[in-house]
């Protein structure tokens, strides 16, 4: 059903033409500075050094398949950890008073404001064999020899989760805030317990936030570059590292374009599957 101009006005919406005009600068910037150049790079993957799919045959190499797979695993692990750690924080932000919520949001956002290099070196100092974590564990006699955390996949996943948390927490908190407080009350009246309310009302209604958060964390992690380079072990090769090598060391931009397109297609595919699994349309249509 389409709305008439009047109905839009009554809902506080701007006329269509005016809103189109207002998004023009942003659209022009995005298209001119990001979309077009990206498409041009991707196009060269089909045209250079010759017309065809030669660059894509090169992607079909055990190394790239393995690294793509590993990239997915690390992104998946980071997303999972971020949901588990982020959901309770989101609940805290959604249910608390202004001050507590503001402090919680600030804590979650701090890693985003810290430059990635400084963050990574901080983790190095934290994780290294005689670093804080190991010294504490040894002094409290939980372990006798330092754990090897630094330069492993675990270090990368922990550090990525740390910085990705805001992308998970904020959308979940928003969707939690949007749940009408009447719903849990009504459920309580009908005899539902706390767990039942959570599983059958709060969690399903916050799914759009979880979905948005997971999607952002997953896609952003797929492209992680600096953190795996500094905290990962030799086998923590992620696809962006290989794309970076093609761009900056080997100067094979068409092949880098091919690898990037494969990554984009994979992320889109996973997004589609994810959407299907969660049957989001049904969940979102509660309005």
């Amino acid at each position: 059903m389409s709305l008439t101009e009047l109905e839009r006005g009554m809902r506080g919406e701007l006329p269509k033409r005016l809103s189109l005009l207002m998004i023009m600068p942003t659209a022009a910037l995005l298209i001119g500075v990001i979309t077009l150049p990206t498409l041009l790079l991707l196009a060269t993957s089909f045209t250079s050094p010759e017309l065809g799919f030669k660059n894509y045959y090169k992607v079909n190499d055990p190394l790239y398949i393995l690294v793509l797979f590993r990239t997915m695993i690390i992104a998946g692990a980071t997303t999972f950890l971020a949901v588990c750690l982020g959901y309770p924080v989101a609940v805290l932000i959604a249910r608390s008073g202004k001050i507590v919520a503001a402090v919680a949001i600030a804590c979650v956002l701090v890693p985003l404001w810290t430059p990635v290099l400084i963050r990574s070196y901080a983790w190095i100092i934290f994780f290294q064999p005689n670093g804080l974590v190991n010294r504490y564990l040894i002094e409290s006699q939980l372990i006798s020899k330092p754990l090897r955390i630094l330069y492993t996949d675990a270090a990368v996943v922990i550090a990525l989760t740390h910085v990705m948390l805001p992308y998970m927490v904020l959308p979940i908190a928003n969707s939690l805030k949007a749940i009408s407080p009447d719903l849990p009350k009504a459920a309580q009246n009908l005899g539902a317990g706390a767990w039942s309310i959570f599983w059958r009302i709060t969690l399903p209604l916050s799914l759009p936030g979880i979905f948005a958060g997971c999607l952002m964390v997953f896609v952003l992690t797929l492209g992680a570059y600096v953190t795996p380079a500094l905290l990962g072990g030799p086998s923590t090769l992620m696809i962006s590292t290989l794309i970076g090598q093609q761009i900056t060391i080997l100067l094979d931009w068409p092949f880098a374009g091919a690898l990037s397109l494969v990554l984009v297609v994979l992320s889109l595919g996973i997004t589609a599957v994810f959407r299907r699994l969660l049957k989001l349309e049904r969940v979102v249509a509660y309005d």
């Binding site: 290294q128 064999p129 090897r148 330069y151």
Partner: peptide
């Protein structure tokens, strides 16, 4: 030598840090 290498440094600063911390 691979099993005996604990740090594969990507930038020199990482190597410096590894020596400093005796990693």
């Amino acid at each position: 030598i691979k099993p005996h290498v604990s740090v594969w440094w990507k930038v020199g600063g990482q190597g410096v840090e590894a020596f400093k911390s005796e990693t």
